[in-house]
């Protein structure tokens, strides 16, 4: 099982065992990682599952699709490495992934 680490904006870390095929957002919720509202439940329409992904993971994750790019406009403090965690599907290649959470989703 791939391991994923979530780092809250105050530095608190949560390492979880993730299930392949699920999304990063779903895994965060399943393990009660705070700070992901994910209002739309993974529909790529609300922008409240925003995370920052370290650049070195970009090639494994792939680029955001056109819908994700559009919905990122709803998110707060968007940076070049911003992603919607509901759109990142977990694969074995993502073992060791580190994502940082923004201070707030709203």
């Amino acid at each position: 099982m791939p391991k994923i680490t979530f780092i809250e904006s105050d530095g608190r870390e949560h390492e979880i065992e993730a299930q392949t095929g699920a999304s990063v957002m779903e895994m965060a919720r399943a393990h009660n990682v705070p700070g992901l509202d994910a209002d739309c439940g993974g529909g790529c329409s609300c922008g409240t599952c925003h995370v920052y992904v370290r650049p070195e993971w970009r090639t494994h994750i792939g680029e955001p699709n056109e819908f994700e790019v559009a919905t990122l406009e709803f998110a707060v403090d968007v940076e070049a490495n911003s992603r919607l965690s509901c759109q990142i599907k977990i694969t074995d290649q993502l073992d060791g992934l580190v994502v940082t959470l923004p201070a707030s989703q709203r």
């Binding site: 994910a38 209002d39 439940g41 993974g42 529909g43 790529c44 329409s45």
Partner: peptide, 22 residues
């Protein structure tokens, strides 16, 4: 289990006011 309903649509036209309605 929280799965996305389609009440606010989907894709490019997904409800612009979804946060407001919520």
């Amino acid at each position: 289990e929280r799965l996305p309903h389609l009440t606010f649509g989907q894709g490019f036209h997904a409800c612009l006011g979804n946060a407001l309605a919520r």
